[in-house]
Design a protein around this nucleic acid. Structure first.
Length: 473
RNA sequence: GCGCCCUUCGUCUAUCGGUUAGGACGACAGCCUUUCACGUUGUAAAGACGGGUUCGACUCCCGUAGGGCGCACCA
């Protein structure tokens, strides 16, 4: 009976897709999926000064990486300017708008005066009821919306509840600039209406706009869409997202080694909840999502939790899938290109084999990459400090003896090697860990690397031993 | 300054008048263990403040404080 659900994500291409925008896109996407509807994508590029092509590309790429697909082609809002002008004309014709001949300078003065007198900063309605015949010559007018006076404008918001604005607090906003281009609030209403958008999900920073837009819908006799205003995401320090953390584009999260699925899961839990559910698939999210379960207070972005979640997703991914994910990640990682250049079928096989041990100790793809460095290590290796220490302490013989044992061993599995070496360590009166650790560190050069036996088995013992021998001289 | 919104462990949150206020991350401690991890067990940790309403408030109302958003010929 009800209309098919149509949501939209409408970013302005003045920068990358930041984390708040990504969550808004996620919610719109999930909501559409939940109701078997569509999510449209509209690029709000009416600000010709600040909109850029690279920004559009970054937004599309970010959404694609996150797996948030949109229906149909992305719509350029600017391309619809003629229709916006048409509607402005209708508003003019029906008495819901009027020409205003105030110059920008006059408006600045008006604002400054209001501020000085500590009055609300609003347009004073100078031209609201003035006869256009009084218009000063040579001034290109703007068109202002005639905001209804008296009474109030009510927003029934799924997340924010019933929000009431006194109409006197909403002044006559400009809907068409003096150069004939439409402004945001007009364009949004016209586009959402024309695109048959049924549900608007966006940040609370648009709440006041929602009131102004509602007035335009009413003036045009159009149905006001269902609205949900999502609380904002703050940086770890509680203030707004700064450049150092939250304000990063999603591509930065990609470069930090986060998985799209983990980021989706994390983002969903910021401002939305489903009982005690913490870790859930996107399918479950789609099944559970309801705008009524969105909270009202802003959330801080917590990298520690994202990292934990990401580690969980890495650990639970199949080895071959993880290898694919890692390979896809490499081009976006610092130093990743070099590794990619060294990739061979042999190394790929080794990588897959090592994945079981590697993924247990990696929280991000960056750490996974670092853990796999031993596969790319080139001689001469740098001797680990602990190994040096053990040798200095007189443990040199033990290390060499262990090496001999490994060479002589007929055991070919990590478990068998382990058993042999364990027995050996006891005869030496040394703790196995004390021997194994420096060997591993010398081989891998990292602290997040897998156990020595995994390393030996993956590399093939001959090669490993040769490397270790180089080190022990 | 004006308008709107928000306020439960350090962080994300559950609770929809009656709970020992629950979970997760993080922290700390124990166990597991050849290292690092993983896993596992446990501990500490919260209703901003002040008034109401009510037999009973985290939950409803008012105020205070703090925070956020908006107030462009930006979106």
């Amino acid at each position: 009976m009800s209309l098919p659900v149509i949501t939209r994500f409408a970013p302005s291409p003045t920068g990358y897709l930041h984390i708040g925008g990504a969550r808004t896109a996620l919610f719109n996407w999930v909501y559409a999926k939940r109701h078997g509807g569509k999510m449209l994508l509209r690029i709000e590029d009416t600000d010709r000064e600040r909109s850029t092509e690279p920004a559009i590309a970054a937004i599309l790429a970010g959404m694609t990486w996150l797996g948030l697909t949109w229906d149909g082609d992305a719509v350029s809002q600017y391309s619809r300017a003629a229709r916006h002008r048409e509607v402005a004309g209708q508003l003019l014709a029906t008495g819901h708008a009027y020409y205003c001949y105030c110059s920008p300078q006059e408006l600045d003065a008006m604002r400054a005066k209001a501020e000085a007198e500590k009055r609300p900063i609003r347009y004073d309605g100078t031209w609201r009821d003035r006869d256009p015949k009084d218009a000063p010559a040579g001034v290109a007018p703007v068109i202002r919306f005639k905001s209804p006076q008296g009474a109030e404008t009510v927003i029934n918001d799924n997340a924010q509840g019933r929000v009431v604005f006194a109409n006197r607090d909403l002044d006559d906003l400009i809907i068409l600039r003096s150069d004939g281009n439409p402004t945001y609030n007009l364009s949004v209403v016209v586009d959402d209406h024309d695109m048959d958008v049924t549900h608007i999900i966006r940040g609370v920073d648009h709440l006041t706009n929602a009131a102004r837009q509602t007035q335009i819908y009413v003036a045009m006799g159009w149905q006001v869409p269902d609205m949900t205003h999502v609380p904002l995401i703050h940086g770890p320090d509680g203030a707004k997202l700064s450049k150092r953390h939250g304000a990063l584009g999603v591509e930065a999260y990609r470069a930090m080694g986060y998985l799209p699925a983990a980021l989706r899961n994390y983002l969903a839990r910021l401002g939305w909840s489903h009982g005690d559910a913490e870790i859930f698939s996107t399918e479950q999210l789609v099944e559970w999502f309801d705008t009524k379960d969105i909270g009202q207070s802003a959330a801080r972005f917590d990298f520690a939790k994202l990292e934990n979640l990401n580690g969980h997703y890495i650990r639970h991914m199949a080895d071959d899938e993880l290898v694919t994910a890692l390979l896809d990640f490499l081009p976006h990682a610092e130093g990743g290109a070099a590794l990619l250049a060294m990739m061979t079928d042999t190394r790929r096989a080794q990588l897959t084999k090592a994945m079981g041990g590697l993924k247990q100790r990696a929280k991000t793809l960056v750490e996974l990459m670092q853990g796999a460095m031993f596969l790319f290590a080139v001689r001469p290796l740098v001797m680990d400090e602990k190994a040096r220490q053990i040798m200095a302490d007189g443990g040199r013989d033990s290390l060499q003896a262990m090496l001999k044992l490994l060479e002589d061993s007929t055991a070919w599995t990590a478990a068998a090697l382990e058993a042999d070496v364990k027995a050996f360590a006891e005869t030496q009166g040394m703790k196995l860990g004390k021997l194994a650790q420096p060997l591993r560190a010398s081989l891998t050069g990292t602290s997040t690397s897998p156990p020595i036996f995994d390393v030996l088995e993956v590399l093939g013992r001959d090669e490993s031993f040769a490397r270790i021998k180089d080190q022990l001289g």
